[in-house]
């Protein structure tokens, strides 16, 4: 099966619809949404409506820190722009949408594959798995041979041998469109990159395609109308920085 894995959508409707249309053209048959469905962007309701339709059709969903912040709490661990966006998002959500977000699990495990927003090690602590040490702790916290995560907003692939005593973790920056065979003797941790707010200097939306039968993993980049997404952020009165960064990908 061709599984499309989308992380960190951040209420960016233009990016989400562009990625879903792209995935459909690539033959995606299943979907996984790795959290941070809302927060930062100006279209939480429209994005949630689309994601809920996929959830009803069997898509995998997990919760992100921005989804949690949109429900409750003071967001004291967030930067000021993120906190402001979270409080704004909270005012926009209906009771049904809040219930939907509140029902999202921290992790989902399916056929030896773990789906999580941040780290498999204490997922509720929202650690950034951005280096080999964090990746090693994340891999050590689960027996799953493959982990899909988001949160970092960079496409990255960590891997380590299964053999006891030789589990050193190495990192690899994947090339767009270049399929990586996930060999069976190794454990893999794939960061999908961000749909709605890429931060690797490339403003194009990022998502992952996984061919489960052939175990081929391919990172995709989809150019989308970030100007409309930025204009909506400005029109909503959200912090200017959230609009500005979309066109530059930081």
């Amino acid at each position: 099966m061709n599984l499309a894995i989308l992380a960190d959508i951040h209420a960016n409707l233009e990016a989400l619809t562009a990625c879903l249309a792209h995935a459909e053209r690539q033959g995606a048959e299943g979907y996984a949404f790795l959290g941070d469905l809302v927060g930062y962007g100006a279209d939480p309701e429209a994005c949630l409506a689309i994601i809920q339709r996929h959830a009803a059709a069997g898509a995998i969903l997990v919760r992100g820190n921005h989804d949690e912040a949109a429900l409750a709490g003071l967001g004291l661990d967030m930067n000021p722009a993120a906190r402001e966006a979270a409080l704004w998002t909270r005012t926009r959500l209906s009771a049904a949408e809040r219930d939907f977000l509140a029902g999202l699990p921290y992790t989902v495990e399916r056929d030896g594959t773990l789906f999580v927003h941040a780290s498999a090690e204490r997922p509720q602590d929202w650690e950034y798995v951005s280096d080999e040490r964090a990746a090693r702790r994340c891999l050590a916290a689960t027996s799953a041979s493959l982990i899909f995560a988001g949160h970092v907003h960079h496409p990255l692939l960590f891997h380590s041998l299964r053999e006891p005593g030789r589990e050193g973790v190495a990192a690899f920056v994947p090339q767009t469109g270049s399929a990586v065979t996930l060999t069976p003797g190794r454990r893999w941790l794939a960061l999908a990159g961000s749909v709605g707010q890429p931060r690797d200097g490339n403003p194009a939306a990022a998502y992952l395609l996984f061919d489960t039968a052939r175990r081929l993993l391919t990172w995709q980049r989809v150019p989308y109308d970030w100007m409309s997404a930025a204009a909506k952020i400005r029109a909503a009165g959200l912090p200017e920085v959230l609009a500005q960064r979309l066109g530059e990908g930081w």
């Binding site: 053999e163 399929a179 990586v180 065979t181 060999t183 003797g185 052939r214 081929l216």
Partner: peptide, 17 residues
């Protein structure tokens, strides 16, 4: 040799491409 298995994996990955 540690490279035994990694070498085999490399063949799996590269030949597939």
């Amino acid at each position: 040799h540690p490279a035994c298995y990694a070498g085999f994996e490399t063949e799996q990955m590269v030949l597939a491409r």
